[in-house]
């Protein structure tokens, strides 16, 4: 397979099949240039997401909410909808994502695995779970070596034959001079986005969000968890991060020093 810009984008956006992901990942692993490019593109994507979600933190103007709250009373005449019987009503993925996000925040801070309540708009997100401060990832854990030694933006197969891949997304410093990593765990049946921090020669899972029990794919297309913006993950990163995410070189240096300053 020739890695065109379109294929690289589709890889980053989770638009490839599991087999295609594996093929592209293999080629990426062999090419330092592609590794660098993928890392750069992921960083741009993450910054773009944070840039435009930054406005979420600003209160919604009262004037806009007042206008909506006063509707329809303040309208001179309110007529019923025109009927358009042939138009399909779409239920786009973002609606489910939004429902899932709401469910995620219901559980945020509870410190335990929570199942999202079932609703009409969240049928595919029924198995959403939130785990916070819920696990030590020690040397005996299969994730440990991926977090400890594997560079960001490159897939790491942890369960051969079971299509379970870990993709560290980025590494960042914290205010107490520690380090944390954001990473995805992707398998055919589930995917999670996670943040773990290194504490006393081990890793502590700070937050894990994702779907379980079913593939997030639609029509055979696989959607990687790392692609989707998740407000809970974004929020915890924003609370922890100091400065910039580490560059590939800095990250390699920190790993070489066994995560000591």
């Amino acid at each position: 397979m020739i890695i065109t810009d379109e294929i690289l984008n589709a890889y980053l956006d989770g638009e490839l099949t599991v087999e295609e992901i594996a093929e592209v990942a293999t080629q990426i692993e062999k090419s330092p240039e592609l590794i660098k490019r993928v890392e750069t593109m992921r960083q741009y994507d993450k910054t773009i997401v944070r840039t435009y979600h930054a406005i979420d933190t600003k209160p919604m103007p009262d004037s806009i909410m007042a206008m909506l709250e006063n509707f329809p009373e303040n309208q001179k005449t309110v007529l019923p909808f025109k009927k358009k019987p042939t138009a399909p009503i779409r239920s786009p993925k973002w609606q489910m994502a939004m429902a899932a996000s709401i469910a995620l925040f219901i559980g945020f801070g509870a410190g335990q695995t929570l199942m999202a309540p079932s609703s009409e708009t969240a049928t595919s997100a029924e198995n959403i779970m939130v785990q916070q401060n819920s696990g030590i990832i020690g040397p005996d854990n299969i994730l440990f070596s991926a977090l400890e030694n594997h560079p960001s933006a490159t897939p790491f197969t942890i369960l051969a034959g079971n299509d379970t891949t870990v993709i560290p997304a980025m590494t960042f410093r914290t205010a107490d001079n520690g380090y944390c990593r954001e990473y995805s765990v992707i398998s055919q049946k589930s995917s999670t986005q996670n943040v773990a921090c290194r504490v006393e020669n081990t890793w502590l899972l700070k937050l894990s969000v994702g779907t379980a029990g079913q593939s997030p794919s639609e029509n055979g297309l696989y959607q990687t968890a790392s692609h989707l913006y998740n407000p809970a993950i974004n929020s915890i990163i924003q609370n922890l991060i100091v400065g910039d995410a580490l560059s590939a070189d800095d990250e390699a240096q920190v790993m070489k020093q066994n995560w000591h300053q």
Binding site: A10, D13, E15, D45, I48, V49, Y52, H53, P92, K93, W94, A97, E218, N219, L221, Q223, H227, L228, Y229
Partner: peptide
């Protein structure tokens, strides 16, 4: 649409 809002290519 794709990066910020997470639309699939089909959407």
């Amino acid at each position: 649409l794709i990066t910020v809002e997470g639309y699939s290519y089909k959407e």
